[in-house]
Amino acid sequence: AEDTGVRVELNEEDDGEKVSIALKLWVEDPKKLKGKYKDTGAIEFTFDLVNEVPEVVAQEMVESGFFLDCDVKVVGKSIRDRVALIKWRRERTVSSGN
């Protein structure tokens, strides 16, 4: 995935089945953000892999004061990339099991 300066990792082991999964997001390189970033730490949250949209969660983070509006796209993309990877791994696991 592209290096956005925002890192998103799994915050629990993926059993390959649960729809809602715990993620952890933190800023690895503040220089890649357009807005001035407050060093608040890592943000833990749960994400519904089926029903939720990464950009909506990013917008909620903006509204909660973690990021500025100008960075909503980069935060959303970072979450989207991680979610895509989780889904890809799951598909690969399922297909290799068949």
Binding site: W26, E28, G41, I43, E44, F45, E60, E63, S64, F66
Partner: peptide, 27 residues
């Protein structure tokens, strides 16, 4: 480390925790 909880109006919980230092610069 210290943690703080922020609940967005949509009901989502954000928990702020220390950045995992060992994982800051993974290759």
């Amino acid at each position: 480390g210290e943690t703080a909880q922020v609940v967005h109006s949509a009901g989502r919980k954000f928990i702020v925790s220390p950045v995992p230092e060992a994982r800051l610069k993974e290759p």
